[in-house]
Design a protein around this nucleic acid. Structure first.
Ligand SMILES: [Mn+2]
Ligand SMILES: [Mn+2]
Ligand SMILES: [Zn+2]
Ligand SMILES: [Zn+2]
Lengths: 139, 139
DNA sequence: TCCTATCTTGGAATAATTCTATTATATAGT
DNA sequence: ACTATATAATAGAATTATTCCAAGATAGGA
C-alpha cells in the first residue's frame, strides 16, 4: 500500500528500497518477527541487505513510536508494528506469539509502596500457554 | 542459613562450595541479579568460578522450580529466587527491578478467541516507570 | 541537477549465553 | 573412613544476538 509510505514522507525519514521493503513486510504483520525473520524476508528481494540495516530501521521506527520491542521471549527480541497498547501470549512449545487486545488497565493498579517509589509509565501483560498445534503434537 | 542448604540435600543436587555460595547469595535476594551480577559476587570468594558454573546452577534451579527467569529487561536476563507468582516494575532510567506482589489473576482473563487456541499456563505483568532516584537526577 | 545529510553495507567488535572436553569432587553405599 | 561414580567445575572455544565503524551510495530538498 502507498499509505504505509505516505506516513513517512517529508519527515526526515529516507525511504530507501530496503526500508520500503521492511515497511511493507511489517505493515499489518501480526507475526511478531525477530530481526532475523525480517532479514530473511528482505533478503529475498534485496540479497545484499545487511543486519545493520534491519536493526537501524527498527530502531528508527521504535524511536518514532511506530514499533514496539517485545520481551516475552527469553531467547530474542521480537518486533511489533502495532504500537497501540495490547498484550501477548507465547506458546511455550513453538514460540509463536499472538496478540491479546483486552484492556486490563483498570485492573492493573499498583500498591502505594510501589507508586510512592515509581512514576509508572506503562505496563504489559505476558501470557504463556500451549497452542493447539503443539497440543496435537505432544498428544 | 543452613535452611537454604537443607532444601537441596539428598535430592541429587550436589552442594559444591560454588553452588552453596550462589544459593546463599540468592537466598532472600530481591535485587533480580543478572548472570554477571552473580558471577561477580561469587568471584569474590571463589576467584576461579566460571560463567558456565553460574549458568549451570541457575538452570538447575530453574528446572527445579526454585528460580525464575525474568524477561522484563530487553538487554539481558535477570534471575529471581522467589518462584511464587508475582510481578515486576523496572525503572527505565537505571534498570532497577522491584517486586509487585498484587494478585491480578482474577482480572487477567482472556477472550474466547485466545482460550480456544491456547491452553493458558501462566502470566506475568511487566510495569515500567521511573524510580525516585532517577527523577531526582533528571530534574 | 546538485548537495549533503542520511542510509547501506561488510565486516569487525561486543556481549550474552551455551557447549565441550578435561579434571575434580560430593555423596551414596560399603 | 574408603571408594566408586555420577555429577559438577573449569577454561576456553563456539554460538548467537546485537551494535559499531568506516567507506561508498543515494534520497530528496534546494
Ligand atoms: Mn502484538
Ligand atoms: Mn521478583
Ligand atoms: Zn505452539
Ligand atoms: Zn531508576
Amino acid at each position: 500500500m502507498e499509505s504505509v509510505l505516505r506516513k513517512y514522507r517529508g519527515k526526515g525519514f529516507k525511504l530507501t528500497p530496503q526500508r520500503i521493503a521492511i515497511l511493507k513486510f511489517l505493515d499489518g504483520n501480526t507475526s511478531h518477527p525477530t530481526a532475523e525473520d525480517i532479514y530473511t524476508e528482505i533478503k529475498k528481494k534485496y540479497p545484499t541487505v545487511s543486519f545493520a540495516t534491519v536493526y537501524n530501521t527498527v530502531q528508527a521506527l521504535r524511536d518514532r513510536g511506530e514499533l514496539l520491542e517485545i520481551t516475552i521471549d527469553p531467547q530474542r527480541k521480537h518486533f511489533d508494528p502495532n504500537p497501540s497498547a495490547h498484550h501477548h501470549i507465547m506458546c511455550t512449545g513453538c514460540g509463536r506469539i499472538a496478540d491479546v487486545f483486552t484492556d486490563y488497565s483498570k485492573a492493573l493498579t499498583l500498591p502505594e509502596e510501589v507508586t510512592s517509589e515509581f512514576h509508572v509509565t506503562g505496563n504489559h501483560v505476558d501470557f504463556y500457554g500451549v497452542c493447539s498445534d503443539c497440543r496435537k503434537k505432544t498428544n
